[in-house]
Design a protein around this nucleic acid. Structure first.
Lengths: 195, 195
DNA sequence: TTCCATGGAGAACCTTCGTTCTCCGCGTAT
DNA sequence: ATACGCGGAGAACGAAGGTTCTCCATGGAA
């Protein structure tokens, strides 16, 4: 009925990966709307025809890129918070941010950028971004609970992380990661101080 | 030589204001690229011809809107921090944010949104946004100095304000203003504690 | 070798958008 | 009243972009 699809399927998967790699890079670097489908074709080496066979359209590519970034982010968080006391695992989040901010292609949080650019017109994008941020807040809340601190600490630490990302992106300076970490230390220690 | 320009000039100024009011509303609500010049014409009631006599082009309108927003923001800050002790004037910033976040048209910080959407492709926009944020950080730094706290406190408080804005925008929830305020209180009091 | 299906290159299509131009009505000065 | 010129409505224009289509080369099967 259909093509053997063993080799075909593998090729398609590899092509889709190349498209998403290219889209991730270009969308993050220039903004989504500044990147055309032809830019994606040129950067990925995947023909337009195949591109449209693999994805329903540009919007679908945007959603896939966001979902992939979400998984990458979760892996970063998991790796950063893998070991140590709850307190040090919370602080490790800011160390992870510090490393990220010094990458020369750092342009802020892709989710925040996409939300600003597309969130108002694309409910789907807004929803993915929202879910991503909820996930992060949940992770932080779990660590805060593990540390034995009151749950009101969690949103404060999350706000510090968000603020560090936008501040570092706009200023083009990685310092906010360290400043946020220092603030987080004070907040955590204050929260752990016996009432 | 030229037209009397008394009545003419006034009309142009009023028309320009109406254009910028409309642009501010629509750009903030939908994002800059989602708004066409014809939308601006329809919303402002100013004809395309006049619009292009008043402004060099869309990019110029974007820049004017950003500059106007910057002035509005500075006025908000000045009003919020007009009276009280340095400590309470710092905290008043988060109270101002709390009021802003509850407005039903709240969609986050226009500067952060614009930076994410256009910053990569428009150096002019990036520069205006950067200058705006530098201005805010300077204001906070002055208040921190007046409070007698170490200058390292200032970026921490600014990061909390930035994070509250993006978190509130994405979650669609005004709570982050209060959470940031609570965190700011802890940080300020910690910084003022005698070494 | 010959036929056919597959997929790539890139032209074509259609819409949108920024910008400019044309045409017309109206108010004014003489 | 009439000629003039400003300004508005909206058509026109050119570029860009998302999507689809045409044509051709290639490679495997009979």
């Amino acid at each position: 009925m259909s093509t053997p699809s063993a080799q075909r399927g593998l090729d398609d998967e590899a092509a889709a990966t190349r498209v998403l790699d290219a889209a991730d890079r270009l969308f993050y670097e220039r903004g989504v709307q500044a990147v055309g489908m032809d830019d994606l074709r040129a950067e990925s080496g995947v023909s337009l025809k195949r591109l449209y066979r693999l994805f329903a359209g540009k919007e679908s590519i945007v959603e896939h890129v966001l979902e992939r970034r979400h998984e990458t982010w979760e892996a970063w968080i998991a790796e950063a918070t893998a070991a140590g006391s709850p307190r040090s695992r919370l602080l490790a989040i800011y160390d992870m941010l510090a490393r990220w901010f010094t990458q020369d292609d750092f342009r802020g949080c892709f989710f925040i950028n996409s939300f600003g650019e597309l969130g108002a017109m694309s409910p789907r994008v807004a929803e993915i971004v929202r879910a991503h941020k909820v996930g992060f807040q949940t992770t932080v809340a779990d660590l805060v609970t593990a540390a034995g601190a009151p749950s009101s600490l969690a949103p404060q630490l999350a706000i510090l992380a968000e603020g560090a990302q936008t501040t570092a992106a706009i200023a083009g300076d990685p310092e906010p990661a360290k400043q946020a970490r220092a603030a987080a230390e004070v907040l955590i220690d204050h929260a752990l101080r016996p009432a």
